[in-house]
């Protein structure tokens, strides 16, 4: 997590922006390299189930992570590997979950992107799209109820997920309660194979915000500077008590829906349009052009990230898998109320 409390009056706005960009870029780079490692582990048959990558969405996602404080709430979704790292998740947590380690935060019970640490304000998504938004509302409602101030909650969704009933109910709820919610929509043009025109018919997804009475923001999701600016502003406005904010980013998913998918349905015209720019490359150009970093530094960061990823993979691969005989086969926390009948699985 990048602490945005650097005092502008001391170090100056340019320095603040430089630090913000450098920090964001390094998380993006880590996320991209981690994704690539996950893809290769998947192809080698080392990961059970699916692998879902964030390629092309790192700039948007990282902007969330670096705009939040440790005391905020974050409920990332399927393509938030960069935001997760920036919010404070370790590469270890991520790999332990994806490789099913018994020592990981999910203990092999859940996998891949379905991970989190709710006590740390880092919610663990379920698959059902739209379902996390009202849960974030609940955490914000509770913090207000308890008198905790200065909190923001951010959650993410895709263009496809905006068609769920849960999305509409939760946005309306956040507006009615005037909660400090920032909902970030990554419009990557497709929901699995389905293009935007079969998902919604409004001219722009920010139109939705108007209907709920919440503040809309649009951003080019391939441009790190724009993402840091717009997401940062939305978070600041929510923190100031201006109610829920809807950020809609335009970008393209530069990978399959999951690693099983070759994404042959993506229109080549879209790939060759500005939407199809690789945000990581765009970010590199920004840093180089502004002389905030040079190629040598970037190579060092890349090698450092690769080294951490490789050593962490090696470590996690030596960790124990969950043991079904040691597993507590109960889903109830109240000890006295656990079923004891054999058939019920205890």
């Amino acid at each position: 997590m990048f602490d945005t409390v650097l005092d502008a009056s001391v170090v100056g706005e340019t320095d603040r922006l430089r630090e913000l960009h450098l920090s964001a870029y390094r998380f993006m780079l880590q996320a991209r390299l981690l994704d690539e490692k996950l893809a290769s582990l998947y192809r080698a048959g080392k990961i059970h189930g699916g692998v879902f990558l964030s390629r092309g969405q790192e700039a948007l996602s990282v902007a969330i992570g670096v705009s939040l404080r440790k005391t905020d709430v974050f409920a990332p979704l399927i393509r938030d590997s960069a935001g997760r790292l920036a919010f404070g998740e370790t590469i270890l947590d991520s790999l332990q979950t994806c490789l099913g380690s018994a020592l990981g935060p999910m203990r092999g019970r859940d996998g891949n992107v379905h991970r989190g640490k709710p006590r740390e304000g880092y919610l663990a998504m379920i698959s059902h799209l739209g379902a996390m938004i009202s849960v974030v509302n609940g955490t914000l409602f509770a913090r207000r109820f308890k008198g905790v101030k200065d909190v923001v909650g951010v959650t993410c969704i895709g263009d496809g997920g905006t068609a769920t009933g849960a999305f509409h109910e939760a946005l309306n709820q956040a507006a009615v309660e005037k909660l400090p919610l920032v909902l970030v929509v990554a419009n990557n043009q497709y929901a699995y194979s389905t293009p935007n025109d079969r998902e919604f018919a409004c001219a722009d997804l920010t139109d939705r915000a108007v209907g709920y009475g919440i503040t809309p923001h649009s951003v080019d999701g391939t441009d790190l500077t724009a993402c840091l600016d717009v997401v940062g502003r939305a978070v600041a406005q929510a923190r100031r008590g201006e109610g829920p904010q809807l950020v809609v980013a335009s970008l393209l998913r530069l990978c399959g829906h999951g690693e099983h998918d070759d994404a042959g349905y993506i229109d080549p015209k879209k790939k060759n349009s500005p939407l199809g720019r690789d945000c990581l490359k765009v970010a590199e150009d920004i840093l180089l052009n502004r002389q905030w970093a040079d190629a040598t530094e970037m190579a060092v960061w890349r090698n450092e990230a690769l080294r951490i990823i490789e050593t962490t993979v090696a470590r996690v691969q030596r960790e124990p898998a969950p043991d079904p005989f040691a597993e507590h086969w109960t889903a109830i926390s109240t000890r006295d109320l656990r079923e004891t009948h054999d058939e019920l699985g205890v």
Binding site: G100, R109, D110, P322, P324, W329, L344, G345
Partner: peptide, 15 residues
Amino acid sequence: KDTPIPYHPNLWAAH
């Protein structure tokens, strides 16, 4: 078993 369905193949096979 009376729990959600676990992700890890070891747990799933016992579930």
